[in-house]
């Protein structure tokens, strides 16, 4: 079942001058077709200014397309009467962990979304407990968010979205401001949600290591989708990725370089194990000869 269906999406940032005339305009999203199946883990890659964050904000109806259409779980995002339903269906986690936590205590923050939805008290507490446990932050329920690490704060933010029981979670560069440990925590949490709760995940990032486990990777550049496919398909095109100035994992780059030097390796190596195994094969092949 399709959960997100976007056709020829366009979004234009228009800058007005003081007389109210159009001074300049910039197409941040330019004719994107989105087609996401429920339960998928989708990664959207692209450098800053590629339009990936603008696209993400459309899914939650924070931004509305200038042209084209976007349906979230069958609901048109331009339909104002469906606005709160859409926001509940597609939750959103942002980049800066400090700027999206509203509550002064962890559990109060997680309850913020359900409170807005007008859910009865008992149900709110049930959901708060469930979502804090799902992200592994239950022990911290009565802490102040200010005393948590970046990764922990992002997990609280994720719990806040999970408590609204969305079908889909959009994460807009949730790891950009975190250290490697925090990054790992967040990605593991998201993967677990996708696996156990069958929540559709749309992860916007510029860290390539984070997309290895995605079902599908979408690469954006200048507001357009320029590459699309499984991680392996994407990573086997090292030159194209370099062209879009994206970071390729070191192992993949190393494999690519070795291949260029004549070593017989398969395309799209993603992990250290894959590379060492492939190299082992090469060596034993040579020995046999």
């Amino acid at each position: 079942m399709k959960i997100i269906d976007g056709k020829n999406l366009k979004f234009e940032y228009v800058k007005w001058n003081e007389e109210g005339q159009v001074e300049s305009s910039m197409k941040a999203v330019d004719g994107v077709n989105l087609d996401i199946e429920a339960g998928d883990f989708i990664a959207v890659l692209g450098h800053n200014g590629s339009g990936k964050s603008t696209l993400a904000k459309h899914i939650n109806a924070i931004l509305l397309p200038t042209e084209g259409s976007l349906y979230v779980d069958g609901k048109d995002t331009r339909d104002e009467s469906k606005l709160w339903e859409i926001r509940q269906t597609a939750g959103m986690v942002f980049q800066n962990p400090d700027n999206q936590i509203i509550g002064t205590i962890v559990d109060e923050d997680v309850g913020f979304g359900p409170e807005n939805m007008g859910i009865p008290k008992e149900e709110i507490w049930r959901r708060v407990e469930k979502s804090l446990k799902a992200v592994g932050m239950w022990e911290y329920r009565s802490h102040s968010p200010n005393k948590l690490s970046g990764g922990q704060k992002q997990r609280v933010a994720i719990a806040g979205v999970v408590a609204m029981q969305p079908k889909c979670i959009v994460l807009d560069e949730p790891t950009a401001m975190l250290d490697p440990n925090g990054r790992k925590e967040v990605i593991q949490t998201v993967r677990e949600l996708n696996r156990a709760e069958k929540v559709t995940v749309i992860l916007i990032t510029h860290y390539m290591e984070e997309v290895i486990h995605a079902d599908k990777v979408i690469v954006m550049d200048k507001g357009k989708v320029v590459m699309q496919g499984t991680p392996r398909e994407i990573f086997s095109r090292v030159e194209a990725l370099k062209h879009y100035r994206l970071d390729v994992p070191q192992v993949t780059l190393l494999a690519h370089e070795l291949k260029q030097s004549g070593v017989d390796l398969p395309e799209g190596i993603l992990t250290i194990e894959e590379l060492t195994q492939a190299l082992e094969k090469c060596r034993s092949g040579k020995k046999l000869r």
Partner: peptide, 17 residues
């Protein structure tokens, strides 16, 4: 909580093999 670059792991693994 730190890690060496991936290439270090590649050569270390190969050595162990």
């Amino acid at each position: 909580g730190l890690a060496a670059p991936q290439v270090t792991y590649v050569t270390q693994t190969l050595k162990s093999q």
